[in-house]
Every structure is written in structure tokens, then in C-alpha cells.
Design a protein around this nucleic acid. Structure first.
Lengths: 214, 214
DNA sequence: CGCTGAGTTGAAATAGCTCAACTCCTGTGG
DNA sequence: CCACAGGAGTTGAGCTATTTCAACTCAGCG
């Protein structure tokens, strides 16, 4: 779970053609490599640092006292995260897969720039959209919204790359892994999806999926 | 439901001693009076205006295509709302009770001031906290968190003023009004609450309530 | 005094959870 | 190259919390 970030250095960046393409060696500037399931920051730590994801994915979550976990956001390649309302982290951040991050320390950026403001507002909007999903709707609807969102953020390919486990998805949508699995099976049985592997989903009928989102 | 804001003018402000006290006549400056259940803005409208609540309460929500409603936030007296990520409103805003609002048009305020930034980040944090509640936990736990939050925002009185209906609460917590009602009854049966009226809750055992929040 | 909307309560239906068994995939070591 | 172990995912069966539908109470108001 808490593999040290250093271990990532054993995996040469060349194994990530996408990342290599987007951030050619000359432009790679202070990229930190993290193995899957590495902690980026913990709840309670001093905040300030921002992170830009070169490749990989990150889950933002909180641990509840009974051991349950609520994932409040996933961040994918190309996105920036790490904004906090207070001086200390309110959540944990961990990689879900092997991930490359560029960090920006407080002081390196203008804390009140229009870009940051836009990002904060977008964060609020995304959390509120997430609320719409988690708050109501059946498990299959939640899953549909999740997949359509992922599709959009990956540039609407017909093959969705799932950079997280069923456990992560369950904790994000507020349901058990069994319910996630059962409803994926249901979508497959309906001819809407194909599941070539557990980390890849081929969307056969995008319109059907979108219709489920209402 | 969509009573015009004008109708509020039939209710003299003198009926609201709290408001009168906080905003004495001399300082009342462009306060708009809204009757209960009045629309403040609608999804899709051009955004920009900010609102400060002199007295009353507001629900921020979205209507789903099947008629269900998800309330993503309540705002109470003293709070400011109306920030948007985009040029257009992503949600509806309505009063839940008779409400006095001071408006600030875009241009009257600095869109990138530290105060606004702090407000945006607080909005994000609150939405994420809300996610923790809605995403998991049993109905009774959700209700406990909701009441404790309300208590805090009203200055921790032992009498909570509920400026919204069971319906609003249900749509906020992602449950039916019957479940809200049943679980309030359960808390009352446990000697934790008293319900002098449907819009007022007396908290007899705050520690018990807090313990339910974990 | 009856009407109306909000809230409460009851009974039956059901979606999702829990617990458990099983498969599949992957990596490791002989 | 195969055997094996361990983790991730799937499937099944029974259980339970919440929803649904319906009846009822209660308070405010013309």
C-alpha cells in the first residue's frame, strides 16, 4: 500500500510512451516518480505544494474511523491537484498506478492568480457534480456517470483505461466492490460494454451509457 | 414554489428581529427581500452576481431529468454564495424561507481577491465534506452529521432552527422524507432530541449526536 | 370548520450489503 | 517450463436498511 516513492525509480520512464511523448526528456523538469499506491501527502500535513500529473492517476480520500474510505476525487494525467482551504491537508492523496508528478511549492506560484481561482472553482464544481452522482441514483446509473466522465477526461476513446481498482471505484461511488462488479457484468450482459481485461473497458454503445446518466 | 421575489415586500422586515438587529435600517443597503421558495437564479443563467444572506436560508440544487432533486448545499444567514466555475450557473438557487439578500454585481468586487479565493476553497472543502456524508454511512449517521453541522453554523445553541423542510433535508442527504422522519423519531426515542415543532430541534445529548458522527 | 400541505407511521417490496466460495491473472521460485 | 501463492475480480445466497405506497395526524389558514 504505502510503497516508497523511490521504488518508482526502478521503472524506467521509457516504459511510458505517452508520458515520454508529452514531456520529452529536455522538458522534464523536477518530475517525481511514484510507484502505484504511494502516498503523496497525508491528512493533517502542512499544505502548499501543488501537483501536476505527467502520467498516471491519483486518488484523494479520507479514512473514516470505522476503516471505511471515501474517495472524493480522482485526478488523471494532465490535471493539477493539491489546493486546500486551510493550512493543513484535509485529505490523503495516493497514486493508484505508477505516476509521474511535477511539483510546485508555495511561493513558486501566485496564491491568488486567476488560474488558481479558476482551478479552485472547478474543484468545487466537480465536487458538487460528484454529489449529484453519489447522492442519488441507482448503482448502475452511478457507474454509467463514472464511465462517461472518465471517457470525457480521456478524450472520448472507445476503450476506457481504468487506472484504479474496483475497490477505488466503489469507495468513489459509495458502494461495495461486489456491487461495482455485478453492475459492470449487467452492462456487459446488456451489450453496452466489453471487458477485455479488468483495467480496460470497451464501450460498445456510448449512447446507451449516456442515456443511463439522464 | 416559484413565488416572485416581489411578494416578499408584503412581509414587513420588522417581522424579523434578528435581521433588524444585524442590519439596522441605516446600514441596509440594497437588500432584496425574497419570500420562501423564491428563485434567486436558475441553472443556465449568466453568472457573476454574488449574494450575502442577511437573514433566511438558501438551497443550491439541480433538477434531474426524472424530477428528482439533489441539494448540493444550504447557505445560512451571514454566508455568501453565488461563485461559479463557468460563465453560466450550474445549479439553481432558491430561498427555503423568507430571506433577505445583499447582492454584489461582478465588477463591484475583485474576482481574484484573497477573500474570494478563500471562499471558493471553503466551498470546495464543504462540498467534499458533504461527499463524505452522502457517499457512505447510514441514514441516522447522515442525519447526525447534518444536525451537528447546522448546530455549529448557528453558533452551537441547544435549540436548532431548521430553516428547511424534511423534503429539503432528504434531497440534501440523499434519502426520502420518510427515512428522514423515521430517523428523527429514532433519535427522539433515544432521548437525544426533542422536537418541539417540525422546524425546531432541541438537542438534549449533543455528545451522543457527535458520537454518531464518529 | 373544513381544506391543504407537511410530517409521521405502517406494511410490503427491493436494492444493495455481507459473507463465502470460486475463478482468473500475474509474478515467483523450483 | 510448470507449480504455486496471492491478489483482484466475479458470482451466489441470505439478510437488512431503505424505498415505495398508503393511510393517517396535525397545524395553519381562508
Amino acid at each position: 500500500m504505502y510503497a516508497a516513492a523511490q521504488t518508482a525509480s526502478f521503472h524506467p520512464i521509457a516504459r511510458h510512451p505517452v508520458a515520454a511523448e508529452r514531456f520529452p526528456q529536455a522538458r522534464v523538469h523536477r518530475i517525481a516518480l511514484f510507484a502505484a499506491d504511494s502516498e503523496i501527502y497525508a491528512q493533517g500535513e502542512r499544505s502548499g505544494t501543488l501537483y501536476h500529473i505527467a502520467f498516471g492517476a491519483v486518488r484523494i480520500f479520507r479514512l473514516l474511523s470505522d476503516g471505511r474510505r471515501q474517495v472524493v476525487a480522482f485526478h488523471l494525467a494532465g490535471e493539477t491537484f493539491g489546493f486546500e482551504a486551510g493550512r493543513n491537508r484535509g485529505f490523503f492523496a495516493e497514486t493508484t498506478v505508477e505516476t509521474g508528478l511535477r511539483t510546485m511549492e508555495a511561493g513558486e506560484y501566485d496564491a491568488c492568480s486567476p488560474e488558481l481561482m479558476a482551478n479552485a472553482l472547478r474543484g468545487m464544481a466537480r465536487a458538487q457534480e460528484h454529489l449529484l452522482v453519489v447522492g442519488r441514483q441507482s448503482a448502475i446509473e452511478k457507474l454509467a456517470v463514472f464511465l462517461v466522465d472518465l471517457m470525457g477526461r480521456q478524450g472520448d476513446p472507445d476503450q476506457i483505461d481504468l487506472p484504479m481498482t474496483r475497490n477505488d471505484i466503489g469507495d468513489y461511488l459509495g458502494m461495495t466492490i461486489e456491487t461495482v462488479s455485478r453492475n459492470l457484468t449487467k452492462l456487459r450482459a446488456g451489450g453496452i460494454l466489453r471487458l477485455p481485461s479488468s483495467r480496460c473497458i470497451e464501450v460498445l454503445k456510448p449512447e446507451h451509457l449516456r442515456r443511463l446518466c439522464q
